[in-house]
Design a protein around this nucleic acid. Sequence first.
DNA 1: GTGGTCTAGACCACG
DNA 2: GTGGTCTAGACCACA
Lengths: 123, 123, 123, 123
Amino acid sequence: MFQVDANHPTPLYAQLERSIRFAIATGRLRIGDQLPTVRQLAVDLRINANTVAKVYAELERASVVETRRGVGTFVSARPNEAASRRDRDRHLRELTDHFITETHTRGFSIDDVIEQLESSRKK
Amino acid sequence: MFQVDANHPTPLYAQLERSIRFAIATGRLRIGDQLPTVRQLAVDLRINANTVAKVYAELERASVVETRRGVGTFVSARPNEAASRRDRDRHLRELTDHFITETHTRGFSIDDVIEQLESSRKK
Amino acid sequence: MFQVDANHPTPLYAQLERSIRFAIATGRLRIGDQLPTVRQLAVDLRINANTVAKVYAELERASVVETRRGVGTFVSARPNEAASRRDRDRHLRELTDHFITETHTRGFSIDDVIEQLESSRKK
Amino acid sequence: MFQVDANHPTPLYAQLERSIRFAIATGRLRIGDQLPTVRQLAVDLRINANTVAKVYAELERASVVETRRGVGTFVSARPNEAASRRDRDRHLRELTDHFITETHTRGFSIDDVIEQLESSRKK
DNA sequence: GTGGTCTAGACCACG
DNA sequence: GTGGTCTAGACCACA
């Protein structure tokens, strides 16, 4: 559901927070949906439970999620659709920029990459 | 020329390294081009010169740039690609497949991605 | 455990890196052993903690040590030697021939050298 | 005659000074022998003439060499034999320590190295 | 004037 | 308490 990479220089908590916010912004998580428990998510992502708890707390402070004691954590925010569109664009651009950088490091040009993607599209 | 954002949770040095690699990947920096001096770039980006120096050192370790003592820092020639054509193709396919999966998880189609890549190529 | 000399013209970080690699090469540090903490080693050697951290980071990049965040730094398993027996032999011969030439230029015989190597092995 | 390595972390001037002192200490350069001219040595070693000049000046200040204007630079020191012996030992030890570290980095044990050296000795 | 090294000290991420 | 990041500022090596 969410992804974090311990070797990525971005702090784990920031990766996770962003990942959750993005899932909500794009509708993969909707208002009222329950998030995984702190411990479960920590196990799934192989990170420390404190790190997950910190992110949930931060999201609660921002009114993005709501914690009901003894029950769980739920999505409370109503994403701003306009902002979401901008977020999507920005996010796609970041992903592709990083991909371009990474493939170039390994010796491939943008043209190589586009060609490969087009052949994937046809399939 | 390069961009970093002190408020972004990704470390400044990682942002800058990526930014430089991206400039090379997209052809805005070419082999032999001189990079800004350590101190000048530090002033431009409003970050510490040590942070810039760290990035240049890291890029030199990776043979992306070459420093000539007392002269400056330059984009170095790309190392020879020793792998066979077949290995290269397989490698590119792996990278691309991984990228498609990642973007798809986030709700982007292959067409979205190709469009974004094309726009990077034009710059 | 490790030695550096602030008056030696070789940079401290280079002295320390070599010292740690030497300790591993001679078996005084083994796979899995924990290295001193950054701050402790800085105190012991009377150098700045950043200098130690730089060395640990460099050794990690070279896969010589492994750091576990919030835990410590450890000697990592040696990467698999992928080269064939034949290539390895040739490589070792090249290194050794170069070394013999270098020591001979400075007036040492092969016997002198072997004797010195034996004494390192015993430690 | 002398060796310096621009990629070695030790400053060029220190490498060169040491190299010259060692040649004198071991008798490869004797009292009255002429050293190469600053410019010639700079060309041979592919370093800047200022660096060579700086070393010669330093050696002159230490009365190791003597410069006769318009003539050249000559060895003036009488090496201390006892000190020279200690220097030799220390030097050999440094060389072998570095060699052990380097070969270990490339996956060879001290035993591998000794074995290779012994086979070279027999030839 | 270029990059490189080192320091002292602050603050952060993680377990 | 562990390592990581960043800063400000000093001094050095080299061209």
